[in-house]
């Protein structure tokens, strides 16, 4: 059965939204995501372009400024809620792990 759109986020979606807590232009996200994750997550330029377009369409981010080819975006309240939902989902997974394997296994 197909996954409903954005029901669960990919890492790339999660970190892109995270970058937009403060106003940020698209091109900067391309640098910030690998910086933020120590290079473990990279967002391709085409993928980022599509994500920004789709996040705008569902109202999770909004465009704030256009300077030439640089468009800046910021997270909206709905986007913030979506991020929080995803955080809680990941946290619940981490809790489940902790419950099964215990604290000592975290090291």
């Amino acid at each position: 059965m197909p996954r409903a759109k954005f029901q669960t986020m990919t890492e790339q979606m999660f970190y892109t939204l995270l970058c937009l807590k403060s106003e940020c232009c698209g091109m900067d996200i391309l640098d910030r995501v690998p910086e933020m994750t120590g290079g473990t997550v990279n967002v391709g330029s085409g993928t980022l372009y599509t994500l920004l377009e789709q996040f705008c369409a569902v109202g999770w981010i909004r465009e704030t400024r256009v300077e030439g080819r640089r468009r800046s975006y910021i997270l909206t309240e709905a986007g913030r809620e979506a991020l929080a939902r995803e955080y809680r989902r990941i946290q619940a997974q981490a809790e489940d792990y902790r419950r099964i394997f215990g604290e000592e296994d975290q090291k």
Partner: peptide
């Protein structure tokens, strides 16, 4: 290089 498309579903 980092590929242009990194999300198969979106690609």
């Amino acid at each position: 290089p980092v590929p242009i498309e990194t999300d198969p579903a979106l690609e």
